[in-house]
């Protein structure tokens, strides 16, 4: 199971994090049961001047900056392919 943690902190939210609100519906059927979505109050990744990378998500604990649903889907496809 791949865990995708989406930051719902203020900075990430205003810089595009809200576009993940319907991410679950956008996920293709083949990802069902293989990807778990979790919302985080603030992942703390934008500290220390790194806020230009917001919005952030973490995929299996690895931070991904400037995250968009398309980018995250691409990464997930890649990970699932390599698992096969």
């Amino acid at each position: 199971m791949i865990t995708v943690e989406i930051c719902m902190g203020t900075t990430c939210f205003v810089l595009g994090g809200d576009s993940f609100s319907d991410f679950e519906e956008k996920m293709p059927v083949e990802m069902a049961g293989k990807v778990e979505l979790v919302a985080g109050r603030c992942l703390g990744l934008c500290r220390g001047g790194k806020f230009e990378g917001a919005p952030y998500v973490k995929i299996n604990g690895v931070p991904v900056g400037n995250a968009t649903p398309t980018l995250v889907l691409e990464i997930l496809h890649e990970m699932l392919r390599s698992e096969e």
């Binding site: 902190g9 203020t10 939210f13 609100s21 979790v38 919302a39 985080g40």
Partner: peptide, 27 residues
Amino acid sequence: GGTTANILARELGAEIKTGLKPVGGLP
């Protein structure tokens, strides 16, 4: 506040569960 909640959760040993879908344009 997200950071505030995280600090309090850490200090109080509590867990935070967050909804994913914004409601009324807010987290």
